[in-house]
Design a protein around this nucleic acid. Structure first.
Length: 941
DNA sequence: CCTGTCACG
DNA sequence: GACGTACGTGACAGGG
């Protein structure tokens, strides 16, 4: 039937359906393979309901679901920032977009999208055409941007509220008739779409002005007549921006369409096609309902895992994966690959599957030094292989060490040449457990592993705070299998062997098992990731960090051995002097480094007060106790000096030297992504996140961290990032304003609390306020504050009470956070990272700990997420600069930069760091970054 | 291997 | 009413 008078066209805003469905439903997955499917399910239900509701006498003659074409539209050419601050669609929603198109076609409803145009433009064009042909139009949407189309036979329908939107409703919303809606929108702008509009003008004012002057052009022409100076100037100064805004909000009635109204005629669904689709999606209820409706048999839905026909191509389908837990572990089934033919067979299996679990065995734990010994692979649970590459005959007995190669190994280079194309193939997913380690090893052999998944990071995203994420713990917990302990192969302690000495038969069992476990963990975690709603966290905050950290670790930082060595000698001399004095004062020689012996001297022999014994029945002598004693006695004072030097010498000036890599002359720390529950990184071997800075003597150790010739070290750190995040999360206006105005936040807090004007602030009052600000971040207690400030507990409690009185929002944040943790068993950062709080409902002393940890975690964790985001974006941002990112210290990033590029690098890095929260989170407080540079870390910080 | 101590944010 | 408490880490030394 040709479209004309008497026809009724229904246009459904498809994107609105999808997003509503996505947010309304829990994250459902297809049972057979874990494919995210919630939005599709909701979409189908909505579409089905819509069709059922529109079968009566007023049924449409023509109908279509209109979608947005992904990517940019012509509006981006008018204004490049259009919709620029839109966060990307959630990871688990992306694969559902094409499925909603399939669903629409399955219901036999026309489904249209046009490249370069938004759905709204297609809707506008069709509405215009239908109106001209003399028909009626109903737009199923509540999007205000479509209201400009209303009138002359076109109306909207808000399907959720079942409310018709005609000209009257438009006037209610915009204060003007539909044909002037564009003018109002152009003036008011739209922050979600980044339509600029006129600053300071909202919908109300815009409508007022348009109604007074008639239309936008007249208004802009006669803007000088506006009596209010602010409005007048806003319009006069931004006339061009307003005209651009109008072009952005004006829908295009001339979108080139590759179909006509006649093509949209309503058709009866084809029950067979529809039920096939619903069965494929495993929508049981809807399939049954549809089947009843058409009086046909409901399809049989097989949703046992692995049964899916494979929606991502046939490869995955022809060899269904058994579930990770059903197949028993059988070490005898693991294969020792020793021939080119066997290797080829494995590569074929991997190519067919499209993914592979990979694990490397090496001679040590230091990826900068350890040599590759073998590689294991798995694509099917229970089946795995080990390819030994550098095993030797030696049994490990030193006397009879035999380092001739063991039998049954392919040449290493031949294997690497064969595996490299697969390991670098963008079509083949490499799955690892802590894959940063394997990637760093393989990098030294010229192989770049990509793309990849990491089961350790998946576990961290899902189970952060619940347990550790090492392979043994995960295997036991999620596969109910205890892997062979490495100790059984290489022993422990001084007589530990390297893996290349392990006999091949045992090595195959151990190594292949690791690949098997990794694959099974991946199959177990993959669908759960989505259900736990942490896919975005995993994909944007964990996984992309791996290559960034690997590169930083490989670069390392130059450390000057002579500087450290000289300091060590100086410390040794001073310590010897102090030790002699201490023995003199004690009247006997004893081990100054032994708290037990020191305690006996202090509390038994000298009879001083304050001696406490620990669980082991020995005296404890922490610094704060010694500090109290030091006001009266010389001995504890000397011990404190000695301890400081001892710490600096043993942990830093001595130990750091042993970490200088012989080949690079640099120190290569290792960052653990999953080490800290809050999302912070941890640094080990050595820990470069606790290099002294607070005392002058300790800070000098940073002089040994230097830039190579012709370079500078550059350090940039976030200023007060945790307090800023607290101000945002707890929504404290006074704090937010102080940060916006660039005020001294601790002085401001002090002024508020103690009623001291800022110009009369004393350092001591400010210091107390600072301690309270930090205390709040940690989950303040009277006891803790009292100890920190060394004031009576009642006084500390009074400060806290006063603080909460002045900033009631903080109290509310703390209470709300604890309540949330109790209800959900976890807390969240602004970016969706979940930190579990299993102890939150504990009784006894543990309860306090858990509460404070829950209060702290969203703040510390959000700050950690922010710097992670900055780090992930950094390689691209400094790509064209002679600069390398070397270190991260929680709120600080350290770079090594060629002298001439220092200023450019600071500018580029600062920009990335300060804007790192966007676009996912819009902080109500600016992030500020301080920068420094110099020959050494001491100068740069 | 555990505990105490102390370095950092 | 008593108890024990600031949050998050890692390394080293002593001592069993």
């Amino acid at each position: 039937m040709a479209f004309g008078k008497g026809c009724h066209l229904h246009l459904i805003d498809g994107s609105a359906f999808i997003f509503r469905a996505y947010h309304a439903l829990p994250p459902l997955t297809r049972k057979s393979d874990g494919l995210p499917i919630g939005a599709v399910a909701g979409f189908c239900n909505m579409l089905h309901k819509y069709i059922e509701a529109n079968t009566g006498p007023d049924a449409p003659t023509h109908a279509a679901v209109i979608f947005d074409y992904s990517g940019k539209s012509f509006r981006n050419e008018i204004y490049d920032k259009y919709k620029a601050n839109r966060p990307p669609a959630p990871e688990d929603l992306v694969p559902q977009f094409p499925l909603t198109r399939q669903a629409t076609r399955a219901f036999n409803v026309a489904c249209e999208e046009i490249e370069g145009y938004e759905a709204d433009d297609i809707i506008a064009t069709l509405s215009c055409q239908a109106r001209e042909a003399g028909g009626r139009v109903t737009i199923i949407s509540s999007d205000k941007d479509l209201m400009q189309l209303v009138g002359d036979g076109v109306e909207m329908l808000d399907a959720m509220k079942n409310k018709r939107i005609g000209p009257d409703e438009v006037v209610e919303k915009f204060g003007v008739k539909p044909e002037r809606v564009v003018d109002v929108q152009a003036l008011a702008g739209d922050s979600t779409d980044n339509v600029p509009g006129a600053p300071g003008i909202g919908i109300k004012t815009a409508a007022l002005l348009i109604n007074e002057f008639g239309d936008l052009d007249t208004l802009l022409e006669r803007a000088g007549e506006i009596p209010q100076p602010k409005r007048r100037e806003s319009l006069q100064d931004n006339a061009e921006l307003i005209r651009i805004s109008r072009r952005l909000v004006q829908l295009d009635c001339n979108t080139p369409l590759d179909f006509s109204l006649d093509d949209l005629e309503v058709k009866e669904p084809d029950p067979e096609a529809l039920l096939a689709f619903l069965a494929e999606m495993e929508f049981r209820t809807l399939a049954r309902r549809v089947a009843e409706q058409f009086k046909v048999e409901a399809p049989v839905i097989d949703d046992t895992p692995g049964a899916s026909a494979g929606s991502d191509g046939a490869e995955a389908g022809d060899m269904p994966d058994p579930t990770a837990r059903e197949i028993p572990f059988d070490h005898a089934k693991y294969e020792h690959v020793a021939t080119a033919q066997a290797l080829d067979d494995w590569l074929m299996r991997i190519a067919r599957a499209g993914y592979v679990a990979v694990d490397t065995e090496t001679t040590g734990l230091d990826e900068m030094v350890a040599d590759l010994v073998g590689i294991s692979l798995s694509v099917t649970p229970g089946e795995a292989c080990y390819i030994p590459l550098a095993h030797v005959k030696g049994t490990g007995d030193d006397l009879f060490a035999d380092d001739t190669p063991a039998e049954g190994q392919l040449p290493m280079q031949q294997v690497l040449d064969a595996l490299k194309p697969m390991l670098e193939d963008p079509q083949i997913l490499k799955i690892g457990q802590n894959i940063k380690y394997d990637a760093k090893i393989l990098h030294r052999y010229g192989v770049t592993v990509a793309p990849f998944d990491d089961t350790m990071l998946m576990s961290y995203a899902m189970h952060g705070g619940l347990h550790g994420h090492g392979m043994d713990a995960l295997s036991e917990r999620y596969l109910h299998h205890n892997p062979i302990p490495i100790k059984e192969l290489i022993g422990s302690g001084k007589s530990q062997l390297t893996f290349d000495k392990v006999p091949l038969e045992e090595a195959v069992k151990y190594a292949a098992e690791d690949a098997d476990i990794t694959l099974r963990l991946w199959q177990t975690f993959k669908p759960r990731l989505h259900r736990a709603r942490v896919t975005t966290v995993y994909e944007t905050l964990e996984r992309p960090l791996v290559p960034v950290l690997a590169q930083m670790e490989r670069h390392g930082v130059k450390v000057d051995r002579d500087t450290l060595s000289r300091m060590s000698n100086a410390f040794a001399q001073k310590m010897a002097g102090l030790e002699a004095e201490i023995h003199e004062l004690a009247g006997e020689a004893f081990n100054v480094g032994s708290p037990a012996q020191l305690g006996e001297i202090l509390f038994d022999k000298m009879g001083l007060e304050g001696g406490k014994k620990g669980k082991t029945g020995k005296y404890s002598t922490p610094a704060d106790v010694l500090e109290d004693l030091a006001t009266e006695h010389d001995l504890p004072a000397r011990v404190l000096d000695w301890r400081q030097l001892s710490k600096l010498k043993s942990t830093y000036t001595d130990a750091l030297q042993t970490h200088i890599n012989a080949e690079t002359g640099r120190v290569h720390t290792s960052y653990s992504i999953t080490g800290a529950n809050t999302g912070r990184l941890a640094s080990t071997d050595p820990n470069l996140q606790n290099i002294p800075v607070r005392t002058e003597e300790g800070r000098r150790i940073r002089e040994a961290f230097v830039a190579q010739k012709g370079n500078r070290l550059v350090s940039l750190d976030y200023s007060q990032i945790e307090l800023r995040i607290l101000a945002h999360i707890a929504d404290i206006d006074a704090l937010k304003q102080a940060f916006k105005d660039g005020h001294d936040i601790h002085a401001m807090t002090a002024s508020e609390m103690f009623d001291v004007p800022l110009d009369q602030m004393t350092p001591d009052i400010r210091r107390q306020a600072k301690a309270i600000n930090f205390g709040v971040i940690y989950g303040i207690s009277g006891f803790g504050l009292a100890r920190n400030l060394r004031i009576p507990r009642a006084e500390a409690q009074a400060f806290i009470d006063r603080y909460f009185e002045r900033f009631p929002g903080i109290r509310k944040y703390m209470d709300d956070t604890v309540a949330y943790a109790k209800e959900h068993g976890c807390v969240q950062t602004l970016f969706g990272r979940k930190i579990h709080t299993p102890e939150i409902n504990a009784k006894g002393p543990g309860a306090g700990f858990a509460k404070r940890a829950a209060i702290n975690a969203p703040i510390q964790g959000t700050a950690a997420d922010v710097i992670r985001r900055a780090m992930i974006r950094m390689p691209e941002a400094i790509r064209d600069l002679p600069a390398r990112m070397l270190l991260q210290v929680h709120d600080e990033l350290i770079f090594e930069v060629e002298e001439a590029a220092v200023d450019d690098t600071i500018a580029a890095v600062r920009k990335v760091m300060e804007s790192a929260a966007a676009p996912a989170v819009h902080l109500a407080v600016p992030l500020e970054v301080d920068a420094g540079q110099g020959m050494s870390w001491a100068e740069a910080h």
